[in-house]
Nucleic acid binder design. Sequence first.
RNA 1: GGAGACUGUCGGAUAAUCGCUGUCCCCCACUGCUUGCUGAAAGCUUUUGCGCUGCCGCUGCGUAAACUUGCAGCAAGUAGUGGGGGAUGGAGGAAAGUCGGGGCACUGUAGAGCAAGCCGGCUGUUAACGGCAGCCUGGGGUGACCCAGAGAAAGUGCCACAGAAAGCAAACCGCCCCCCACUACUUGCUGAAAGCUUACAUAGCGCUGUUACGAGAGCUUCCAGCAAGUAGUGGGGGGUAAGGGUGAAACGGUGGGGUAAGAGCCCACCAGCGUCUUGGGCAACCAAGGCGGCUCGGUAAACCUCGGCUGGUGCAAGACCGAAUAGAAGGCUGAAUCCUCCUUGCGGGGGGUUCUGCAGUUGCUCGCUGCAUUAGCCUUCGGGUUGCGUCGCUUAGAUGAAUGAUUAUCGCAUCUGUCCAACAGGUGUAACAGAACCCUGCUUAUAGCGGUCUCCUGCC
RNA 2: UGGGCGGUCGCCAAGCGGUAAGGCAGCGGCCUUUGGAGCCGCCAUUCGGAGGUUCGAAUCCUCCCCGCCCAG
Length: 138
Amino acid sequence: MTSDEKLPRSRRITHRQDFLRIQSTGRRCRSAHFLLATLPRVNAAAPQDARHVSDTLLPEHDDARIGITITTKVDKRAARRNRLRRRIREIFRRERARLLSGRDLVIIALTGATELEFVSVEDEVRTLLRRARLYRRN
RNA sequence: GGAGACUGUCGGAUAAUCGCUGUCCCCCACUGCUUGCUGAAAGCUUUUGCGCUGCCGCUGCGUAAACUUGCAGCAAGUAGUGGGGGAUGGAGGAAAGUCGGGGCACUGUAGAGCAAGCCGGCUGUUAACGGCAGCCUGGGGUGACCCAGAGAAAGUGCCACAGAAAGCAAACCGCCCCCCACUACUUGCUGAAAGCUUACAUAGCGCUGUUACGAGAGCUUCCAGCAAGUAGUGGGGGGUAAGGGUGAAACGGUGGGGUAAGAGCCCACCAGCGUCUUGGGCAACCAAGGCGGCUCGGUAAACCUCGGCUGGUGCAAGACCGAAUAGAAGGCUGAAUCCUCCUUGCGGGGGGUUCUGCAGUUGCUCGCUGCAUUAGCCUUCGGGUUGCGUCGCUUAGAUGAAUGAUUAUCGCAUCUGUCCAACAGGUGUAACAGAACCCUGCUUAUAGCGGUCUCCUGCC
RNA sequence: UGGGCGGUCGCCAAGCGGUAAGGCAGCGGCCUUUGGAGCCGCCAUUCGGAGGUUCGAAUCCUCCCCGCCCAG
């Protein structure tokens, strides 16, 4: 079981610098309640920029990574924000094996996203992934 | 049955799949460190051996090692990271708001006073509190119950508009008494004028003698003066707080006496205050009785007074490791005196006291601490670093931050099957909401399920 | 997470115990052929919400709601 559905910390983006880099230079795609930013991960492309990061933090594997941003502006209640983040993570966990490898994804929630049901979130995120052409060819 | 009051409890259960995360154990890979072994290399400061040197000693040189230094490989241990496997733990009643209290940590000063802030019936509870429990007093409610709580006779301030007056009590209107002036009325006296009568009797006025006239007397009317009284107006002096369309609030209430008018001025009852005694209660306070003065506005969530509590800052506290760097400018650095040591002495060293200067704390004062000499202290500016660092830290515990998705059964709620029960089927499985140092309260948000009690209505 | 500041008309705001100034905007009128300018008038169901203190609260007290700022 190599292409599993696990989502450990190495498949998540955990640094603010990565978030900012992906959001500013990556391709962006918008739907009603979410904003998706993607960037191919090139380990040796920018050695000067990523000197601190690439040495120690970049993983050995080539799988896609995800980062989720939900600010308090989206919803003031922490429980709602947590639930939405877990749901997005669950969707990515299931879809990851079918996605292109070597990509970093950042999903930013917009106002009203915390009011959605799980099925609606799933539809929207899948549509976004398809529009960003992140699925494998086969 | 309806309407309420108070209070308790709970925040679904079991099983399964995939996934997240803390700790522990095992395996693999990588990295660091330590130790040992092996290998090659370098060095002669130290130790030892050998050679230059027949023997001994010293020195020097060279060389070697089980000596030193770093390097490589292997093995073991240890730590970290990643992966795999196993075991075990993983959000709440409010985790929330961050409102109160405490622990804990630091702050060279945490010490005193003032200031500042908070609290405020009493007793208990507690580590502490503004919490809780019981009680006391006052107010609200038909009631179960609820709400409030030091001091307004220590002082200051404020009480808009209205109102005579808003707090010391007086002024104003009004009421009453006295005096003066004026006016009106009444009564009495005096005077003058006018009108009427003057009969009878009789010794009875003058004149005339036919009527009549005059004087006098009586009566009536009017005028004037004086006196007294009453009423009114104005002025002055005094008494009074009963009354005075207001206002949130107006100087005890009712009745009687009393008075020029009135008034606790006096009396009875009632309300209230102060004080004393007795009794009850740990206390707040309550009850009874006596005495007193006669009665005292509200506001302290205005200043304030009294009593109590609080030093400040807060885990981004703080401790440690690693990495990195570059400093510059400015300011301050005294006196007096005593003791002691060195010295012939000059002089120097050490210590103490007093004052002084600078710096330090929370606002101020005192006090305290450091420094007062050739190295320190302070201020300002500038430069560097900032790591998924470690600890603090947690029988949940991170540092982009762990609980999600789905299914089955039961439970619960609701709908349908003619009402109830049972049964069957459908739907939903929630709401408020997510720990970041911990504990304890309060407040706020929210789905149910009870318990006790009160009021109203109906039936038996 | 901790600390601090604020909320008054559509906008900017004064007032801080005695019943809410002012400016811009808006509406109506006058003026003008018309518009602008000018002049006059109107415009706060009560001051973010709810309780409390007080005779009386935008103001004082308590609890909530919302917004902003600072600290790695």
